[in-house]
């Protein structure tokens, strides 16, 4: 080692490590700067696209005017979901983030962004199967047949909803992803909820059933039933217990879509309610379970009241009785 090398190393060893901003601050700044970058690069790309389109259009017009052959190609709209139920004010986010109120929106196409107002909610039948719901104050961009981008708010997803739910394919769904700024959430046959807080600093994934793979910006994690995982900046995921029912989940049942009950047994009805409420069904004995399987519902048609109210109404027309016991709906013959 040369003298100059040695003195250089001595010199370096005298210095203190360089100060660094803490992880939380860095993550927060990164998000703000990233937002700005998206705006800047988006504008430039749009400008570039427009210029390219303008140039292309000029050429096309020239070609068409020469050949006098005009053909208009069809624009393909990709239908991603049907709205099954909604309440409160719902908006489509237009150009420059203008909110356009929609009263009679039935179908959602790829490329649209939906915003629910406070006290609003939407339940969707996903075109590829599955049930998706948005809570109040939620903004979601529909990116394609298998993915949405959650800007903020709460999304609930059930890959294999009850067959009672009208117009939903209960046979299960293929790929479905929820993108957020903090990471990507992919279901692995499940019921789960994804939440992004209003400051966009945290991603929360709560799993009611099955497993959910989360590719966080900094850490991956596969959450399982009964877990709530919190991703915040570079911090390792924080894993909490979540029973899958109660206050955190109440909004999901509030937006529960209508069900067709005619010809369905009390057994199926109870399992629908249990799935919606995140509670398992327990019969007091086998005789009660047999009774539930043979007790068919007739003349009630579509029920739009949600599981709590539906349970109350149905109890008046059956010999069965039920009561909530922590994570269980306990069913007996009422004797």
């Amino acid at each position: 080692m040369s003298n100059s090398d040695e003195s250089l190393e001595q010199l370096l060893s005298k210095a203190a490590p360089r100060p660094v901003p803490d992880d939380a601050a860095t993550a927060a700044v990164r998000e703000v700067v990233r937002d700005e970058w998206r705006v800047v690069s988006g504008q430039r790309r749009r400008r570039k696209t427009w210029l390219s389109l303008a140039a292309a259009a000029t050429i096309l017009i020239a070609v068409f005017s020469i050949t006098s052959t005009f053909r208009v190609s069809e624009v393909e709209l990709i239908r991603v979901a049907e709205i099954q139920r909604s309440f409160g004010a719902v908006f489509i986010v237009g150009e420059q983030s203008v909110l356009i109120p929609v009263d009679d929106l039935k179908t959602i196409h790829a490329g649209q962004t939906i915003r629910t107002d406070r006290n609003a909610g939407i339940a969707l039948a996903w075109a590829n199967g599955g049930s998706v719901r948005f809570d109040a104050n939620t903004t979601v961009e529909f990116r394609g047949e298998n993915s949405i981008y959650l800007h903020d708010g709460k999304v609930y997803f059930d890959s294999t909803p009850s067959e009672l739910i009208a117009e939903v394919d209960g046979a299960g769904i293929g790929d479905f992803e929820i993108e957020t700024r903090q990471g990507r959430v992919t279901h692995v046959g499940t019921q789960f909820m994804t939440e992004v807080d209003s400051k966009n600093e945290k991603l929360l994934v709560s799993v009611r059933e099955g497993r959910v793979a989360v590719a966080g910006r900094y850490h991956p994690y596969t959450a399982v039933r009964g877990e709530q995982v919190v991703f915040s900046g570079r911090q390792p995921p924080l894993v909490l217990n979540d029973p899958g029912y109660g206050e955190n989940w109440s909004w999901v049942a509030r937006i529960s879509p209508a069900i067709n009950t005619d010809g369905k047994s009390a057994y199926h009805f109870l399992h629908w309610a249990g799935r919606e409420l995140g509670r398992k069904i327990e019969f007091s004995d086998e005789a009660v379970e047999r009774m539930a399987r043979t007790d068919f519902m007739m003349g009630m048609g579509r029920l739009e009241k949600g599981p709590v109210e539906a349970l109350r109404l149905r109890e008046a027309t059956t010999k069965l009785e039920w009561r909530y016991k922590e994570g269980t709906i306990y069913v007996s013959n009422g004797e």
Binding site: P21, V32, V33, V40
Partner: peptide, 15 residues
């Protein structure tokens, strides 16, 4: 303050 200024610099720079 340093964090705020560094953030400002990066956003201004992007613009």
């Amino acid at each position: 303050a340093a964090r705020e200024v560094a953030q400002l610099v990066l956003t201004r720079a992007l613009q």
